[in-house]
Design a protein around this nucleic acid. Structure first.
Length: 455
RNA sequence: GCGGCUAUGGUGUAACGGCAGCACACCGGGUUGUGGACCCGUGAGUCGCAGUUCGAAACUGCGUAGCCGCCCCA
């Protein structure tokens, strides 16, 4: 065992896993773009105060899981534990609250929490995240749930359940708190120590307690829904109606509360149902109409949802969904000639320019060893140079799976390799859009207009 | 942060308190230069630091990390 290990709760993503995360990111980011949520990137470090009033001091995230990385005299810095306050901070800092509303953002970042690692719970983990600022309609709440449901379905996850609840807006919640505090205070003695504390700090979270002794008391507690004002109830029904209309299955869980202070009205969690992952959320979010006021900005509603990439990746693996293959070169260049390194590179360059993935064996080992290595690295095709047969403008293109080969002129290598493996698209920078009118029959560059054969 | 369990080559595993071994993988070589087989061979380990003991991989303490539970969440 090596002397060095990754720090507690962190891990290395080896190529296959890294490719899996990249694949999931590509899917969710493309979906976000389709919904009008462009990506925003915020720093890994934030001032601690960004999370104190927003996420809330009574939350576990702020109360005991913040990752402190302060430098002396440079403020109180933490590794960001979650996205929403950071994105809101960036939004305000750039003055985007003075731009047309609503504003939508997608984020994908590593998050950090100083917690004891557990199944699918790490100190560094990755979240994708959606935020919609400036819209109070319940339709946006529907949108983020529908988005998440669509995404999870798209990547092939089946074992999850959508749970929703409402906890009322800031005004009504004061009444809710009052009623709950009034109910729990005389029963204090019967609650667990943690819940006794919650009666003072965040009484709503008593409802969420999993402790058996608390649940008995919670059962008799007043129901949040009964305590809310009409506007909150209407908002909640609009959410439910929207989901029902879209055919999205969900369950109303009256005790679902979520541990972050900024939530108002809608709270939602996507829970895994596989017995091995029971109780683990693959995504969660809700509405936070009071967030901006809390940050000292002008009041503005907001809705967001975030999902754990790690959780999703392992849940998919558990469901036997192949997320990604370890990236391997399709083509391996080998040579029996010791002094032709430049040749091998030029050979590779020609293939790479067409999008083939090409690795080169630079060694002078025996040809059979080079081929063996090529096979072990997963190459499908070997381009063999420098043998008596393959000289003077010729190489051999060998299909390593079919064990067939053909002597090929250098000029035709790209074509010959293309008969065995498919090149990958080469990414490019932004290109000017082509005018759709140019595609009209009869336009420049197109053939003359031909009548519809059905005419 | 609290509690329980665990830690032997890269991986998987053996060894009563008494010589740390096996398999696979990896690396080199060979079968007289086209591959996964086969043959030969090399390298590589008791998580770290103390302690008990004639002697510790084994027992004890502390540390570190992993897994599980609690808290809570992605």
């Amino acid at each position: 065992m090596a002397g060095y290990q990754p720090p507690r709760g962190t891990r290395d993503l080896l190529p296959e896993e890294a490719a899996g995360f990249d694949g999931l990111l590509a899917v969710v980011e493309a979906r976000a773009l389709r919904y009008g949520y462009p990506r925003i990137v915020t720093p890994v470090i934030e001032d601690r105060s960004v999370f104190i009033k927003t996420t809330g001091e009574s939350s576990d995230i702020v109360g005991k899981e913040m990752f402190d990385v302060s430098l002396g005299g440079e403020g109180d810095l933490v590794l960001r534990p979650e996205a929403t306050p950071a994105v809101a901070r960036a939004f305000l800092d750039a003055g985007l609250h003075k731009t047309p509303r609503p504003q939508r953002f997608f984020a994908y970042e590593p998050m950090f929490r100083g917690q004891r690692p557990q199944k699918l719970r790490f100190r560094q983990f990755w979240q994708w995240d959606l935020e919609c600022f400036g819209a109070e309609e319940a339709a946006v709440d529907v949108e983020i749930v529908e988005f998440t449901h669509g995404f999870l379905t798209e990547v092939g996850l089946t074992g999850y359940e959508i749970r929703i609840n409402t906890i009322g807006d800031a005004k009504c919640r004061a009444k809710v708190r009052e009623s709950l505090t009034a109910y729990f205070t005389p029963l204090r003695e019967r609650l667990s120590p943690a819940s006794q504390r919650r009666v003072d700090t965040n009484v709503l979270r008593v409802l969420d307690s999993k402790e058996a002794q608390d649940r008995a008391v919670v059962e008799g507690a007043p129901k949040i829904l009964d305590l809310l004002c009409d506007e909150d109830r209407a908002h909640f029904s609009a959410l439910q109606d929207g989901l029902t209309t879209l055919g999205i299955p969900f369950r109303v869980v009256p005790t679902l509360v979520r541990g972050l202070d900024y939530y108002t009205r809608t709270v939602v969690e996507f829970h895994l149902t596989d017995p091995e992952f029971e109780g683990i959320a693959v995504a969660g979010g809700g509405r936070y109409d009071g967030l901006f006021a809390t940050m000292g900005a002008e009041d503005m509603p907001g809705t967001g949802i975030a999902g754990g990439m790690d959780v999703l990746y392992y849940a998919l693996r558990k469901e036997n969904v192949k997320v990604a293959e370890e990236p391997k070169p399709d083509v391996y260049i080998v040579s029996a000639q010791a002094d032709d390194v430049v040749n091998r590179m030029q050979l590779a360059a020609g293939l790479r320019a067409k999008g083939f993935t090409v690795a080169i064996d630079y060694s002078t080992r025996a040809l059979d060893k080079q081929l063996e290595t090529a096979v072990k690295h997963g190459a499908k095709v070997a381009v063999i140079a420098g043998t008596p047969e393959a000289r003077g403008g010729y190489v051999i293109v060998r299909d390593l799976q079919k064990k067939e080969q053909r002597k090929t002129r250098l000029a035709a290598v790209v074509v010959e390799v293309g008969r065995h493996v498919t090149p990958k698209a080469i990414p490019t920078l932004w290109q000017p859009p082509t005018d759709p009118d140019d595609k009209e029959p009869g336009a420049a560059g197109e053939g003359p207009y031909l009548g519809d054969p059905r005419d």
